[in-house]
Each structure stands twice: as C-alpha cells, then as structure tokens.
Design a protein around this nucleic acid. Sequence first.
DNA 1: GCAGTTAAATGATCTGCGTCATGGAACGAT
DNA 2: ATCGTTCCATGACGCAGATCATTTAACTGC
Lengths: 252, 252
Amino acid sequence: MEKSRRRSPLEIKVTETHMCSVDLRLKILAKVPFFQNLPAEALVEINRLFREIGFDSGGYICLAGDPAERLFVVADGRVKLLRHSLAGRDILLDLLAAGEFFGSLSMGAQDVYPDTAQAQTAACILAIGRESFQQILERYPQVALSVIEIMASRLQAANERVQQLTVMPVEGRIASVLLMLSRKFGKPHTVGRLIEVPLSRDDLASLAGTTGESASRVMSQMQKDGLIASGRQWVAVNDQAGLEALARAEVP
Amino acid sequence: MEKSRRRSPLEIKVTETHMCSVDLRLKILAKVPFFQNLPAEALVEINRLFREIGFDSGGYICLAGDPAERLFVVADGRVKLLRHSLAGRDILLDLLAAGEFFGSLSMGAQDVYPDTAQAQTAACILAIGRESFQQILERYPQVALSVIEIMASRLQAANERVQQLTVMPVEGRIASVLLMLSRKFGKPHTVGRLIEVPLSRDDLASLAGTTGESASRVMSQMQKDGLIASGRQWVAVNDQAGLEALARAEVP
DNA sequence: GCAGTTAAATGATCTGCGTCATGGAACGAT
DNA sequence: ATCGTTCCATGACGCAGATCATTTAACTGC
C-alpha cells in the first residue's frame, strides 16, 4: 500500500473572467449534440443569437426559483447543477461538461429555473433567450428531436438514481457515482483514470446521497483495496471492474 | 377517533379484456397533451396509426430490457411504471392516468425499454410504432415542442424525488407521495379526497422509497391525527395542509 | 519560507428505520 | 356463511449510517 494522500494531479485552469474566442464559439456550437446535423449557415445564424458570459469558479449562472428566461450551453469548464433545501443542505443533481445545456426549456412564460447552476471551474457559458430557442426548435425540427432524445436519457439517468437511492447501500452508490464520473470526465493518467473535475468528498457525497464522512470512510477503504487513488479534491479510478462489482451489490 | 379499517369506497371497474370504443379513441387522443392543438383531420390520420390493446389488471404492457419498438398512450385505466432490481425488489417510478404516454421515445433503433409497464387496473392502451411516431414529430413540430415540455416536467419531478430521498425522513416522503397522488388521482368523496387507484401499502412504500411496514406505521399515525383515511387498497386525504407541513420537514 | 485556511481521515456515539415475526381484518370464491 | 388468501397493523430487535468531535494533511497567500 502506498501513501494515501498526495499532491493533486489535477491541472486547474486559472483563466480569469474566462471567455472563449469568437471562432471557438462556432466550434463549440457545432459540437453541441442537438446542433450537430445542422448546415453550416444555420449554425452561423444560430451563433448570432447566443450571448457569451464568463464565470469564475464558484460563480452562479442561474438560481433556482428565478424567472426562467434563458437557455444555457456550457462552452468551456464544468458546471454543477444543484438544488437547495430549506435546511441549507444542498444536493448535487448533475455535473455538466462542454456541449451540455441547462436552464429554461419550457415555453410557459411564467416558469422559473428548477435548479441552480454554479460554475465548478472557471467557465464560459453561451446563453440564448427562451423565445429565440423556441424559434430554432420550430425552424429546425431535427433539433427538437435531438432535444427529446437527450431529455429522455436524462430522465432515465434520474430514474436510475432514484432506484439506487432506494435499493443500494452507500458503498455501492459511491461506486456508481465514481464510475459515472469516470465515464464522463475520466482521462488516462499516471495515477489511474483521472476524473478531471475538482470534487470534494462533500460533492461526491451529495451526488451519492450521503454525508461527507461516509464518503470519506468508503473511499478510504476503496483506496486500501486499490480500487481508486484520491487526494484533496481529486479522484482517479484504478480498478473499474472492482467498482462495478460494488455497484452491483444491493442491500438485502 | 373512528374505526381504522373499513370497506373500500373504491369502485373498481371489472371490464374484462378492456377495450375502448372506436369513436372513444378519437376523444382520448384529442385529450392527450401533445395532440391537443392539432387540427381535427390530423387527429383522424394519427388515429389510424394507433393500435388498441386491452389489458387485465396486473398485465404487463412492456418489460424493461425488451427491444423498444413502440410508444404507448394510456386510453383508460391506470398504468404502473416500475423498475426491477436484481434482488427482486421492485421500485415504482410512476403511476400513469389516461392521456399519458410511455415506452419508446428515442429513435436509436437498438434501444430497449428502460422500465416495465404494468396495468394497475384493467386498461386500454393505444400503441404506435417508433418510426410512425417519429414521422408525426417531424410533420407536426408543435407536437415535438409539447413532448419536450412534458419530458422537462417529468425530469423535474424525478429530480424532486431524488432530493426527497436524500433529505427527507420516511414520514415526509409518504406525505409527499400522498399529496402527489391526491393532486393527480384525487376525487372528492364522503371519506375525504379519495385517491382513485387501488394501492397497497407496499405500492405506496415503493413510491416513497421505504418498506411496507414503515409505510403502514406512518400511515397509522396519520390516520390517528386525522390527516388521512385509509383501508385495504385505498387512501383518502383529509387534511392537505397537515400533510404539506409534514412534507416540508427535513431530517437535520 | 511560515501562518492561516480548508479538506480529509478517523474515532465515538446515537438513532431511524429495515428486518423478522405474529395476529387480525378485508376480500374473493365457492 | 365459511374458508383460504391477501393485506394490514404492530411489537421486538439490530445495524447501517448520520452526527459530533478531533487530529492531520494539503493548499493559499504573504
């Protein structure tokens, strides 16, 4: 067994008031799943409808409960989607990478954002007005079909999580969360498959529906068993099959 | 305090091999949220694409894991959307009323149904092929917009549930479930606002992410406090404000 | 470098609720 | 009615994991 805590292998960009270059925007938009099959000139036009906003790490992009008038696309950085509870205990719903969207999809004019979005790293966000996006949906039906597809897979993921919270013990849920993060944010690295998002034990706990202490205990054990490597604000997966075995275990 | 158990005020239709009349189908389709704003002749045409299937109570409409080739609309009856776990422990994701849809929305040809659908009462179901539905979406963009809207609200509901499972105690979760059911299936009745679905304690427990025994205990207490009335396979809400107070309580 | 701050590990304790077990009440069928 | 089945209520018990508290390690800014 090796030393448990070490220096972070995560390289965090410190770009202040993070902005992406004008031509980068087109490249980003072209990579957004639901704009993928559009002709180039449509993209150029759509690009004009987006406004670009930079956020420092920790900055709030939108707040749950605020009137929902825009839809956002992550151009660069990581965005945390979360929900506040009355007792101040926040729960993390999702982590978004470049190309993913959030914010207002519904056309009801009186709607509010259901969740808060917070920049987890410095981030560049593209924003579009609710009605502009609706025009795009009407003009390009294939975009609407893609959006439906994405919503369906998000709904499925949410239901999966409901199931996990109901039938799996903490260890299994943490394992599932780590596997999901590894799939989405993992990059090969000397320490293992490094999850390229700075995440505290509390963040992971919130994703798994438990407490920071429990997450810490479980992850210490995983580290001892050689399943993962981790330190302050970083995790890497070393034994995917091992984690999958834990993620399959149920409570009874 | 009154006697705790009584005869069921629920009237359950016993229509065998439940089918809905041909002209009823049009009325049903017109009430489906995403077909609501379509011209009459479009509805007639769409109606032709649907096939009608009757199910006895308890019958399986589709099974999680089967190749997903159709989309279903509930014409009459109640449908239970659920997920099996490896250990045999099922969890209830949703209860659907007439006008709601389920099944395959995604266009990927190789997809499978993510959840099982089971008739909770005798039910009449309208089914349409995956590709036929996609043609409708392409032909009538407004339908696609409605579908997006519905998916967004379902996703929000699922996220709400994740939050509840994380921060609320059993009592609060049962209260939330009862309120939700009362909103969706409640009808005024002498015993209170009666939830017009036959639901066992285990069903309610599964919706709240707990066990039948815990649900039973909590509901006994609620009954003593005059919040609800209930018996074998039925519940009625008597004090909505009281339940809402419980649904607001958190664990810390 | 050093001091101050924040995150992580880990131990000690306490409790909500899951599990197992039993008796009784409601319903369906004959 | 009566019987058998299913559903519900309720008690007893134990444990996973939340909570509280303390120490140690990693990062930040000066």
